[in-house]
Design a protein around this nucleic acid. Sequence first.
DNA 1: TTAATTATTTAGATTTGTCTAAATAATATT
DNA 2: AATATTATTTAGACAAATCTAAATAATTAA
Lengths: 219, 219
Amino acid sequence: MNLSIAEENYIKSIYKLQEGDEVVTTNALAYELDTKPASVTDMAKKLNAKKLIDYEKYKGITLSAEGKKAALQIVRRHRLWECFLVDKLAFSWEEIHELAEELEHVRSEKLTNRLSEYLGNPVIDPHGDPIPDAHGKMAKPRPQTSLDQANAKRLVVTAVTDQSTALLAFLNAKGIKLGTQLEIVAHYEYDNSIEIKLKQLPALTISEQVAKNIMVRPV
Amino acid sequence: MNLSIAEENYIKSIYKLQEGDEVVTTNALAYELDTKPASVTDMAKKLNAKKLIDYEKYKGITLSAEGKKAALQIVRRHRLWECFLVDKLAFSWEEIHELAEELEHVRSEKLTNRLSEYLGNPVIDPHGDPIPDAHGKMAKPRPQTSLDQANAKRLVVTAVTDQSTALLAFLNAKGIKLGTQLEIVAHYEYDNSIEIKLKQLPALTISEQVAKNIMVRPV
DNA sequence: TTAATTATTTAGATTTGTCTAAATAATATT
DNA sequence: AATATTATTTAGACAAATCTAAATAATTAA
C-alpha cells in the first residue's frame, strides 16, 4: 500500500485521536490537522476505499487493522527520528517535533531499521512515548494527561501538544521544559487559572488555556 | 523563497545539466526528470516568474544567481545525507541515492548544519563529489567522465548515473562497485563494446550503453 | 531555399488535495 | 414534539503538477 504524505498525516492523526478505540469525529480530525471538515470527509472516503479506515456517513472514523499497522510504522519513524535529533544532533525537545514530521515520511523500511539499530533500538522517545518495534509492537503508553486535568499533585512535564513558538518561548521564560518537575498549588475555577510551583522557584500562575497544552504524568 | 519538492527537483536537475554554464534544453530536462517536455515548459514559466531561472520561449533554461544558490543548498543536503547513510548506517553506494533524494527535501538549515557538524564537516560525499558548505562554496568537481569516453587507461569507478536495479544488479554480478579500479583493454567500434579488466579477474566485455552510465576518473 | 524533421509550446484535460457555500442529518433545547 | 443548534456531507470551484494531442518554431537535409 503506497500512501501519499497527506494520507499518512491523516492516518497518524486518526491514530492519535483514537486513543482507546473511540470513534474519531470529522470535526476533531479537521481541528487536529488544521484543515476543514469538508476536506476530512473527502479524505475519509478515499481512505475507506483503500480499507485503511472504517467510515460510514455521519458515523465517524476508526482505523482498520491495516490502518493501525500503517499508523504504527509512521509513529515508529517519527519517534526514531526524534531520538536521532536529540541523541546525535543535540536538538532540544521543542525543536524536534516539526523536523520529525518531515523525516517520518521517508518510507524505507531498511532505513528505519538501520536507524533504530544505530540508535541502540530505543524503546522510548525523548518525550517518554514508547517506540513501536519493526513489527508494530510497543510498550503501553505512559499515563499522560494535560496539566489542567491532572489530579496528582507532583508531576513531570512529558510533552507540549501545541508547538507554536509563542507557547514555547513562554514556557522557556518560565523555566518549564521537558522533564521539569512541578507541583499544583491551586486550581482556581474563578478565573480559569492554575497556580504551580517549580523546584527552587517561587510559585507562578498560568491559564488553563496554556495548561491544556502541557502534558504531564505523575512522578 | 519557499520551494515545493517538484520545484526543488527541477532546480537540482537544471544545475546538474548546466555543468559549465551551458543552456539546458526542454527535452534534456524532461529526459533527466523522467517527465514530458510539455510539463517542463509549464514549470519553466513558473520558475522564471520566481526569478530562479532565466527562460525565454525556445531559448532554453539557465539558473539565475538565486537559482544557483538554491541548487547548492539542495546538493549540500543530498550529499550530506549520503555521507550519513554510508558512514553511520553502513549503507552501500548503490542504495544511498534514492534515499538521499527524499531526505534532501527536509529544508531546515539548522538540521543541515548540525548534520554536517556531526559528520565532521565532510567536503566530499561517498561518490567523490564535493559538498557545498553552508555558504554554497565548494571544491572543484573531480574530473569525471563516463567510461565509454575515458581516454586514460587506468581508472577508478566514482558513480553510476543510472540507478536502475537492473544495472546495479548487473554491475554487482560483474564485481564492479564504487572504488573498483579497472583498465580498458580495448574499445571495439565494430560492435560498440568495451573490454575491461578488473584486478585479479579475467577480462570482461560490456556494451557502450552500460559504459555510458559508469562514471570514472583516472587513477 | 524549400521540404522534412525535430524541438518546443499551447490548449485543454486529469489527479490530488484543498476550499466555500449550501444542503442535510444528528443532537440539544424548549 | 417541534424548534434551534451543531455536525457532517454534497456540490462545485481552485491550485499544483502532470498529461495528450495539436500547433508552431527551429533546425537539418535535399
